[in-house]
């Protein structure tokens, strides 16, 4: 474990370089094609135009506002989903009856999770924060519930029995055994769910709001601002990569190391 950490630090920079290199090539190629064929900015923007759009957005604060609005919605929807999904998953993982009742429902609704909820969400919550948070909630909720159930089922029965015969009551078993034992799966579920949520978010924001990254993309289309569209697309991808690589993946790895029933190799 210790040696793995050391090599992490040493390999960090070259790994980043090798991951960034293909993008650099792509950007160079893009600029080359735009210049060579004299592509109209109405069809596709040049690299400097996108950079300028980014700098303008930073200067007038609109970029930060859009990104901030999107992140706040994702954070709220995810937090609410985890708060409901983990207790439900715990109950399903321990009570056969509850599992039997909810499993078919979850299976059905997990197909609908995502943008299929936008029409009804906008009817219920109106256009804006509530409707989009609801879509995010749906995207995260089912995956986290499923992974919580899975996590509980991987806990050896002996661990529950040991806790019970050491005097742990029902709630104490949940707190001391089921929750920590299922935590690696729960974190994996959150990571997967957030991936769905991020994609759903962009789609929902195109329809159901007047701020956020998705809205920025969609609005730019009406004004033929291809440089803003491409800037938005780059941000959607880049923010997710940063979120996943810098926050979620390390969190998942640490959880497995610290709480995992089996050691990661």
């Amino acid at each position: 474990m210790r040696s793995a950490n050391r090599s992490d630090g040493r390999d960090g920079l070259p790994a980043f370089f090798w991951a960034a290199a293909p993008f650099v090539v792509l950007i160079l190629l893009w600029q080359l094609v735009v210049e060579l064929f004299d592509v109209s900015p109405l069809v596709f923007p040049s690299v400097p135009a996108v950079l300028r759009a980014g700098l303008d957005g930073l200067a007038d604060g609109s970029l930060a506002a859009h990104v901030g609005a999107s992140l706040l919605r994702v954070a709220t929807g995810t937090a609410l989903a985890v708060l409901v999904a983990v207790p439900l998953g715990m109950a399903m993982g321990t009570q056969r009856g509850i599992a039997a009742f909810f499993t078919p429902l979850l299976r059905f609704f997990s197909v609908l999770a995502g943008i299929a909820w936008i029409p009804i969400a906008t009817l219920w919550f109106g256009y804006g924060f509530g409707a989009i948070v609801f879509v995010i909630f749906n995207a995260v909720f089912f995956v986290v519930t499923y992974n919580t159930v899975l996590g509980v089922s991987t806990i050896p029965i002996e661990l529950r029995r040991a806790a019970a015969s050491l005097g742990a009551a029902r709630l104490a078993i949940v707190r001391e055994v089921l929750l920590p034992g299922a935590l690696p799966n729960i974190v994996t579920g959150i990571r997967t769910g957030l991936g769905f949520a991020w994609r759903g978010l962009i789609a929902a924001e195109m329809i159901a709001t007047s701020t956020g990254l998705g809205y920025m993309l969609f609005l730019a289309r009406d004004f033929y601002r291809t440089e803003v569209i491409v800037l938005g697309m780059i941000l959607v991808g880049a923010i997710w990569l940063a979120l996943d690589r810098l926050l979620l993946a390390p969190l998942e790895r640490r959880t497995i190391e610290r709480w995992g029933l089996v050691r990661p190799t």
């Binding site: 002996e158 661990l159 029995r161 040991a162 019970a164 050491l166 005097g167 920590p180 610290r258």
Partner: peptide, 17 residues
């Protein structure tokens, strides 16, 4: 189960966390 009967398991069953 109850704390009046302590159990030792073949698989140890220690809490890994």
């Amino acid at each position: 189960p109850g704390p009046d009967r302590g159990v030792v398991f073949q698989s140890y069953a220690l809490f890994p966390w």
